[in-house]
Nucleic acid binder design. Structure first.
Length: 241
DNA sequence: CCCTGATTCGC
DNA sequence: GCGAATCAGG
């Protein structure tokens, strides 16, 4: 199996969503967790709160392993300490919610009066043009700039992903394979769980989600005191292709 | 030992 | 580019 656009996108979403390499590997299937990690790094993704354990202070194992006399040859010192280019977690603007509409296709016919927010494709577009949108982490926590820090950010829901088990309960639900440009990609449940599936409702034209979930995914920046706690934005973030 | 991600390097 | 082998650490 090769790294198709879909598989890569899934890997990226899950990785960014906090799923472990093992879980991602299981989800994708046909690949080892090492492959996932390797790919993730090649994609430019990396570190992020990875070790489910505590936050490691110094994970500097990057230095050439001075092994006795193993199979591997002595790795070149190379540039050990480089002034980190850009992976810096700077006040991320709006990585995910910035570009919800990868492509503007001639609105799907079967939509009609069903979409209240879809009346005006532009006016209804909160994220595309709107500057101040905070991104959301896997646990539902807000990723804010240092200046935006706020005390009230206790909700750190544990997200333990369990191994995927083949289950008929998802037979009639929208699976990862059923995703298309026409159905809502909002994840229902967590990847790996038996009943994990996607919303599957017709999308709000121009968005990766249905009208309902667009409302969840793209929330206007509220005034400094009335910001709501957990804007759930698990996986299936807006595709940025 | 289990798990995690990180890194290297032959392919 | 890919990923097994390996390492490092909780």
């Amino acid at each position: 199996m090769s790294w198709t656009e879909e598989r890569t996108a899934t890997l990226k979403r899950m990785w960014e969503g906090g799923a472990t390499a093992t879980e991602i590997a299981k989800e994708l299937g046909e690949v080892s967790r090492n492959a996932v990690i390797g790919k993730a790094h090649r994609l430019g993704l990396k570190s992020r709160p990875s070790p489910v354990k505590a936050a490691e202070k110094s994970k500097k194992k990057a230095e050439p392993k001075a092994k006795p006399a193993p199979k591997k040859a002595a790795p070149a010192p190379s540039e050990a300490a480089k002034p980190a280019p850009a992976p810096a977690p700077a006040p991320a603007p709006a990585p995910a919610a910035a570009k919800p509409a990868p492509e503007a296709k001639p609105a799907p016919a079967p939509q009609g009066p069903a979409a209240p927010a879809a009346d005006t494709d532009e006016a209804a577009a909160p994220a595309p043009s709107s500057p101040r949108i905070v991104s959301v982490g896997p646990g539902g926590f807000l990723r804010q700039g240092p200046g935006d820090q706020q005390p009230p950010i206790p909700p750190a829901p544990p997200r333990r992903l369990v191994p995927a088990k083949p289950d008929p309960s998802i037979a009639d639900k929208t699976s990862l394979l059923d995703l298309s440009d026409k159905v809502c990609r909002w994840p229902m449940g967590h990847p790996g769980e038996p009943d994990f599936h996607f919303c599957g409702e017709p999308v709000n034209p121009g968005f990766p989600y249905c009208v309902e979930h667009c409302g969840r995914a793209y929330q206007a920046q509220l005034p400094r005191g009335s910001r709501r706690p957990p804007p759930p934005l698990p996986y299936g973030g807006p595709r940025v292709r």
